[in-house]
Design a protein around this nucleic acid. Structure first.
Lengths: 204, 204
DNA sequence: GTTGGAACTGAACGGCGCTCAATCCGTGCC
DNA sequence: GGCACGGATTGAGCGCCGTTCAGTTCCAAC
């Protein structure tokens, strides 16, 4: 089993993913190309296709890693000793903060479109579900009287909402002139959404 | 002023935008190319660049039209004779419905990324602001005791949230398994978000 | 020393966005 | 009618893209 290089398939995959992440961070989605990734890791373009089905496959795997990092970030943020409401607000802030700090990689998760009606990959669905589940867990601590269905629905609604705030906020869509002297920060908007939704969940 | 064709610049622009919309509807963002648009309207690729700065410019203009259509859709939906809460829920449903019916065009609005740090175009910011303003107007009818700042913030938060629900919902991210027998529809999730946020706005 | 075959290469293909010298042809003038 | 002007339009060409695959290299086993 001759191998010219010391790199196993797995090492090659890891190197390529790291190179891709570096390019995305520095140049954004538009700056990413198979040739650049290959050059960055000292291989030629053909070798990438021994490890990835195609460039979409590589991007899907980059996104999976970003989602993992985001999940870790949210999980680490939560302090179980705090009251549930504080925990959920902290997670919201951590989400916004992550999206802001890693704007290029985070945008890629949602800017990337698979061709035509290609289904959303399982790796993606599972990771989003896991994040919803984390939110649901802390919502349960806040409103234990609610049924599992209600809590799952609430987690979906609230976290999709936070996600929407992050998207529009990062594209500066929130800096629109609304005839008022103040401009809202993304954090403020997210806080407003979470705070009021939780009140509604407790009282409604 | 010799002109070979009967089409003015404005007519050319209109034809190109319609052709682009057709291609996007049929083939999605990935299927769009300058050559296809040019062929579709019976011109060659060079002519497009007499009317548009580049392809990004064309897409930005397509998106502006989609946003106008969306705004009209929301405005038409609202019946002033209904109670404010009903109006806002109706707008949320109209938003989700629009995004579902015109999925390809609607996704393009948010999938399209301008190169690097190119600022979000004014046409975009203004149209999003107008939508927020529409929401704010009806929130005011619901909670007239709130200050203009509070209402503007609430409109941003709530509508960004609805937007997030639409995004994740259209990508089937909401069909994730959460160990429950039920699956939520996008409409249900949006309703949950709006309903509870409005309760929080009234009581908080 | 030989050889089988995995690892790797890189030219080639069709398509992309975009440019611009060349061409076309309606118009106004004589 | 003939001519020349100049805006309208063309399309080949550039450098890039994703992807393929015949060919080359060279390790491991015998």
């Amino acid at each position: 089993m001759g191998r010219r290089n010391d790199h196993t398939r797995e090492e090659l995959r890891e190197m390529a993913l790291q190179a891709a992440e570096k390019i995305i961070v520095e140049q954004g989605y538009a700056g990413l190309s198979a040739r650049k990734v290959a050059t960055e890791i000292g291989y030629t373009v053909g070798s990438l296709y021994l490890v990835f089905r195609n460039l979409d496959d590589l991007i899907v795997q980059v996104n999976a890693r970003t989602l993992d990092e985001l999940y870790d970030c949210l999980q680490t943020t939560v302090d179980e000793r705090q009251p549930p409401r504080e925990r959920i607000l902290a997670m919201g802030r951590a989400y916004i903060d992550f999206a802001t700090r890693h704007a290029h990689r985070w945008k890629l998760i949602f800017a990337h479109r698979l061709p035509q009606q290609e289904p959303t990959p399982e790796s993606f669905i599972a990771r989003v579900a896991r994040m919803f589940e984390l939110v649901r867990h802390h919502l349960q601590a806040l409103a234990p009287q609610r049924s599992p269905e209600e809590l799952a629905l609430a987690a979906h609604a609230l976290w999709s909402g936070v996600h929407g705030v992050a998207i529009l906020g990062l594209d500066q869509k929130l800096q629109a002139d609304h005839g008022l002297p103040v401009q809202f920060t993304v954090q403020e908007v997210a806080d407003s959404l979470i705070d009021r939704y939780l009140i509604g969940l407790l009282q409604g």
